[in-house]
Amino acid sequence: MEVIVILIIASLLLAGSFLGVFVWATRTGQFEDTTTPAMRILTDDPPATHTSNSLPPSPKTEPS
C-alpha cells in the first residue's frame, strides 16, 4: 500500500505543474483576447518579397 504515497506525490506534482502552466499563461496575457487569434488563423501571410524597395523585413518580436 505504501506505493500510494509515491502515486500521490506524482499526481500532486503533475496537477501542480498544470496549475503552474495556467498561472504562467494567464500572467503573460494569453487569455486577454480569445477572439482575434481565431480570426488571424484564417489568413495567410503574403510572401515576403514585395515590389517596394524601401521595405526591409521587419523584426516581428515584441519587447517584453
Partner: peptide
Amino acid sequence: VWLLEQLFRLHSGVGSSRVNFP
C-alpha cells in the same frame, strides 16, 4: 485584422502590430 497586422510592410519603421478585435 490582417491588414493592420501587415502594417510593417507599408513602412520599415513599424515593427509589429497586433489587433485586439473585441
